[in-house]
Design a protein around this nucleic acid. Structure first.
Length: 775
DNA sequence: CAGTGAGCGAGCTTCCGCTTGACTT
């Protein structure tokens, strides 16, 4: 018999809690939700006042039956799911599915996993808050209605298997609109003036002072005029001012800020970060990684206080509580922090270590003092001109938290600041060494990275810590959005230089606009987005989630009935679904780019059955008329921005490279990039080395021979008796291939020594475990 | 799984938010 059964959401949490409590308690976990709306037939009886049809999904049946068994053996059941809307619903579903008797069921909540917090929670038990549960049901049902009524419209009007939803569709919209901002952006240039002045100190020691003109000039002529004016001008120190300033540490990590910093500092994708954090959490090294709270437990604060004092001294200590600014934050957990702050490093693989150290530094820094700075600004007058040069410098007086942590920014081109400025006096005359006027261009707004998209979504209150990573994956899996790099372009700019009273002009070249791992909308994403924005304007509104959240809050506080709220929404929403099905036609994005110079026929781009396509010539009207030529657009090329030249390029491939071994070699670009085809085999071109438009036959033959060499070494063993069986060398080392299925070879086995029956044994042993493959 | 671009039709796809497996060809 178990006296007390505590049910929490996560098994790692269960393990930790069990350690705190005595033998009287058994702690088990539900692994999140145990029930959900049925997937087939919508799962909601609209006519029966939106009655939800809940089922236990296949993968949760085992957990439920285990919990049922435990409940049968227990005196008191404590439902300890998280203290938020979803957690309350989990507690309620548990009580329903496990048929818990209210007389021996208690609901408890705690925000920190400490013995005190748990014992305190147990003392202050309550019953399930049904208003909060209803708010969750409203949220769940609204999302189901939106997702399952709009998605089928997309299947019929645009393409099968597409999807729409309250969160993902807005995420795509952000990316599409940013792309259009970039396409519409017109870069302008102006001239930035920088002067270098010679400064002599009392001992005759010479140093330099760099100063910037407060004004930029729009044209080269204005810049030139100014430099000419400077040639013989006098430069006088007009003013020197010194101001103290400070920098404060950032709050401890939440899911979203961890994803952003891990992306900026360590280059991890959002899902990589979450997978590594999960490992750290499961091995007890950090607190829970899906959280929107910046709060640290008293225990953590005490520990931070001790460490900072002993490592850095009392001056560095500044214990404080941070408040969340995030819209709709539910704060059921602590911030993400090391479980044991006295460990500044851990055992584990490299990426785990790096992420842990990042978390450790951020947590410690959050409880350290502000950095104290001194900013100096020197104003320099120019005789015969209204303009002024300003030299500014920044000196760190006290490093404070910067001793351990410096937060990065997304800003790619940050100005470097000068440090200490040379000692100068007001009225002092300065001699210039050089004065430059450099042409600078305005830059379009940056494309989103995975992490900066998460930050934007969080800012809008859309999505939750547990869904950021999956949402980012979904919009990529649907083909709406593409994560890729973009090569920079070269651009000339003008530099005017004044030295020794003479101005010279020169041209320089720079690379601009190169981007790494940025999110680009694909054509289908743009078409779906435009369709949704046109017909489902309200759902696609950036404030839609914030608006419905207000209504969920009213339900949670007991001031509103959930079915009334949903019914109100449905009355407006469903007629839109009906009318959209009837009248709407998606825009195929068709554009006429111009005429093909070779044939004079029109060049068109549009969305075809297999994706975006360019076409030369009109569609055939009858059997005799000539058929148009087609070429697929490449990844990252948009229907609305592709130029005639780029479209014509597409028709240059595939092209023949001549004969080799009595067969033609053809170069083209396929799904996996550029390739050479020869005798119906494909040979990939080397990324960054070969260009499909330029490659010649010699190099193609080289590639073919290279791959053949690898193929030759691929086969370790073959068996006469079993032609379908081979031992092969693969990307991950040796493996067994049998009738197109692959099998792992156990570690301690020498692959070259495998006999036929050994292979068969390995195959037999692993075949039981084989699960249906996912796409 | 790299080429295609006719047309028909059955059966399928899809949401968000909790959680962790099982799995790398």
């Amino acid at each position: 018999m178990i006296n007390n059964l505590i049910i929490v959401e996560s098994p790692a949490k269960a393990k930790t809690i069990e350690k705190f409590l005595g033998k009287d308690y058994h702690v088990s976990s539900s692994m999140g939700h145990i029930r959900d709306l049925e997937k087939k037939d919508f799962g909601i009886d609209i006519k029966d006042n939106f009655k939800p049809r809940y089922i236990v999904p296949e993968d949760k049946k085992k957990i439920v039956s285990e919990l049922k068994k435990l409940v049968g053996e227990s005196k008191t059941v404590w439902l300890a799911s998280d203290e938020d809307r979803e957690g309350e619903a989990i507690a309620w579903h548990l009580s329903e599915v496990l048929k818990l008797d209210s007389s021996r069921t208690r609901r408890i909540v705690f925000h920190e996993i400490t013995k005190e917090a748990i014992l305190d929670a147990i003392k202050n038990y309550r019953t399930i808050d049904h208003n909060l549960v209803d708010a969750q049901q409203a949220r769940r049902i609204l999302d189901r209605i939106v997702g399952f009524e709009i998605s089928p419209i997309l299947w019929r009007k645009i393409k099968p298997s597409l999807s729409a939803g309250r969160v993902q569709s807005v995420a795509v919209r952000l990316i599409v609109e940013r792309e259009r901002e970039i396409n519409d952006f017109v870069s302008t240039s102006s001239f930035k003036i920088t002067g270098r002045f010679i400064v002599k100190d009392k001992n005759g020691k010479i140093s330099e002072l760099e100063a910037e003109l407060s004004k930029k000039f729009a044209t080269k002529k204005e810049a030139l005029d100014f430099l000419n004016k400077c040639a013989k001008a006098k430069f006088t120190i007009k003013d020197i001012s010194t101001k103290p300033s400070k920098k404060s540490p950032s709050p401890p990590f939440t899911t979203s800020t961890l994803q952003q910093e891990a992306s900026r500092k360590l280059g991890y994708s959002v899902s990589q970060t979450m997978m590594i954090a999960q490992k750290l959490y499961e091995s007890g090294k950090i607190t829970y990684m899906r959280t929107d709270s910046v709060n640290l437990s008293q225990l953590a604060l005490n520990s931070a206080s001790k460490i900072i004092t002993s490592e850095f001294g009392k001056d560095y200590l500044n214990i404080k509580a941070y408040k969340t600014k995030t819209k709709g934050a539910q704060e059921a957990h602590e911030a993400i922090r090391p479980t044991y702050l006295d460990k500044d490093t851990i055992q584990g693989n490299n990426s785990e270590k790096k992420l842990y150290e990042l978390i450790w530094k951020r947590t410690i820094a959050s409880q350290m003092s502000d950095a104290q700075l001194e900013k100096t600004s020197i104003t320099i007058d120019i005789s015969g001109s209204e303009e002024r040069f300003i030299a500014s410098g920044e000196v760190l007086k006290f490093d404070g938290f910067l001793k351990v942590y410096f937060e990065s920014t997304d800003d790619e081109q940050e100005d470097e600041k000068q440090g200490l400025l040379p000692p100068l006096n007001i009225g002092e005359l300065l001699q210039y060494k050089t004065i430059d006027a450099v042409e600078r261009f305005t830059h379009y707004p940056p494309r989103y990275t995975e992490a900066s998209l998460v930050r934007k979504l969080e800012e809008l209150g859309i999505g939750r810590p547990s869904t950021y990573a999956p949402t980012i994956s979904t919009i990529q899996n649907r083909g709406y959005v593409l994560k890729t790099d973009k090569a920079g372009k070269a651009r000339d700019y003008t530099v005017l230089n004044l030295t020794n009273e003479k101005v010279t002009e020169s041209k320089k070249s720079e690379l601009y606009g190169s981007e790494k791992s940025k999110l680009f909308p694909d054509n289908i994403g743009m078409i779906v987005n435009d369709f949704l924005v046109e017909y489902f304007t309200e759902i696609l509104d950036y404030n839609f989630t914030a608006n419905v959240e207000k209504e969920f809050d009213e339900i949670a506080s007991g001031n509103r009935n959930w079915t009334e709220m949903i019914s109100g929404f449905y009355k407006k929403f469903h007629p839109t679904v009906e009318s959209t099905l009837k009248k709407s036609e998606p825009n195929k994005g068709e554009r006429i780019l111009g005429k093909d110079p070779a044939t004079g026929k029109p060049v068109i781009v549009k969305m075809g059955r297999y994706g975006a396509v360019a076409q030369i010539g009109e569609n055939a009207t009858d059997e005799k008329s000539e058929k148009p030529r087609f070429a697929s657009l490449r990844k990252g090329q948009n229907l609305e921005s592709i130029t005639l030249e780029e479209a014509l390029e597409l028709f240059k491939l595939p092209r023949s490279l001549g004969m080799f071994e009595e067969a033609e070699m053809v170069v083209g670009i396929g799904k996996f990039g550029p390739y050479v085809r020869h005798k119906s085999a494909f040979y990939s071109l080397k990324k960054g080395v070969d260009d499909p438009y330029l490659i010649e036959s010699d190099r193609a033959i080289e590639l073919i021979r290279e791959k053949r060499e690898i193929e030759k070494n691929k086969v370790i063993k073959e068996y006469k008796e079993e032609p379908g069986l081979k031992v092969l060398n693969g990307r991950w080392g040796p493996y067994i291939s049998f009738n197109k299925e692959n099998y792992k070879i156990p570690k301690n086995v020498d692959p070259a020594a495998l006999k036929l029956e050994d292979c068969m044994n390995i195959i037999k042993n692993s075949s039981d475990k084989k699960k249906p493959k996912k796409k």
